[in-house]
Amino acid sequence: MSMGDERGYGDEPGGRTDDAYSTLGGTRQTRTRLPGDDSDGHGRRPPRSSRTLIMVVGVVVVLIAAIAFANRGGGDDAATGGAGGAGKKADASSTAPTGTEPVQSANGVTASGFAHDEQGAQSAAANYAVALGSADMFDKTKRDGILQVTHDPVVVAGLRADMDRAYSPGFLSNVGLNQDGSTPSGLKFVSRTMPVGTKVTAHSTDSATVEVWCTGLVGMAGQGSTKPVSATWFTITEKLKWVGNDWKIESSSQTEGPTPVTSDNQASTADDIAGAVDSYGGFTYAR
């Protein structure tokens, strides 16, 4: 899927079309294998293409995946089992990073303080992909904090405004959340991005362009959910600038894939997915 470059990240920042499922920026089709409606909860439907999407302008990874997920619709695809999970909720601090200078969390969530070199730029790009693909992006207060940490201050104010328009009450409802961004009772909203690899395509002393190949999870786990958690594959290209002793995003774009062949693994129940999300903390990345 594609996203716009440079602030305002497209020709019509923050605008929306008459299509309730669309935003601005590009088109994308996905094929996903979903839990079916078999009585044992493990059946699978044949892959199908999603609707053509007009993507949101900006740099937010999960927003694009969530739109595709919202467009799948409901019907008889309800996941089985309740949202649950044992043990203490894990977070990014559960797996400490390594590197020349261990990265720190500037807002309690997003890593910062990367080395002023090519490896530091790769680490920054991977960490920023994780933060921008997290469920925290659906909460305005947390989203504003993430954008502040990850972006060049010059673009932050305009980007916040664009994202406020993109994360509208209607969009939040389409992905299964309440209009204020909270999760309905008995369900668990899942949104997580996992970098698979990084590649520097341009680098100078104070600028770098880094591609981050990612897989992501997005969906709603819980009894009665009509939007099961599914996987997506995409590559983010981040243009970074050295600002205030750290790497910051100037602009970003996104494309679909590379996407591997879907395996024959059976889809897990909603209980298994919700428990895994609670039990396994997200990584912070450093090189």
Results as ranks from 00 to 15, higher is better:
E238C: 00
D164C: 11
W247N: 03
R165T: 13
T209P: 11
T237C: 03
Y167H: 13
T235H: 05
S230Y: 01
R165N: 14
T235R: 04
V175S: 06
V212Y: 10
N178Y: 05
K199C: 04
V218R: 07
V229H: 10
K199G: 07
G222K: 00
V218A: 12
W233A: 13
A221M: 10
W213L: 15
P228C: 11
D180P: 05
N245R: 13
G222L: 01
F189A: 02
G170M: 04
D180G: 05
V210K: 08
K241H: 13
W213G: 08
Q179D: 09
S207I: 00
F234W: 02
S185N: 09
D206S: 15
G222D: 04
N174D: 14
V200A: 14
K199L: 15
R192G: 01
W213M: 15
P228K: 09
V212F: 08
A166K: 03
K239Q: 14
V175D: 10
V218W: 11
G222W: 01
P228R: 10
G224N: 11
A208Q: 11
S185L: 09
N174R: 15
T193Q: 03
T193F: 02
L240Y: 02
K241P: 04
T201P: 05
G216N: 02
V212T: 12
I236L: 14
S173K: 07
F234K: 00
S173Y: 04
L217Y: 13
T205Y: 03
A166R: 03
A202Q: 12
L240R: 02
A231Q: 15
P195L: 06
S182D: 01
T193Y: 02
R192I: 06
M220Q: 09
G219V: 01
V229G: 04
A221W: 08
V229L: 03
G244W: 11
K227D: 07
T183D: 11
K188M: 00
A166L: 08
V229F: 10
W242R: 05
T226Y: 11
S207F: 03
K188T: 00
S207E: 10
L177H: 03
S191V: 02
L187A: 01
V218Q: 06
D180V: 02
P195M: 08
S204K: 10
K241E: 14
G219R: 04
T226A: 10
Q179N: 07
P195K: 05
S207C: 08
K227F: 09
L240H: 03
Y167L: 15
G219Y: 11
Q179R: 14
D206M: 01
G219K: 04
N178V: 03
Q223R: 10
L187C: 00
G197F: 09
R192H: 12
G222S: 06
Y167E: 07
V175N: 02
G176P: 08
T215M: 14
M220I: 12
H203R: 14
S225F: 08
A208W: 07
S191K: 09
F189V: 00
S182K: 01
G176C: 00
G186E: 05
L240N: 09
P184L: 07
L217M: 08
R192F: 12
V243M: 05
F234Q: 06
W247M: 02
N174T: 12
H203M: 13
A231L: 03
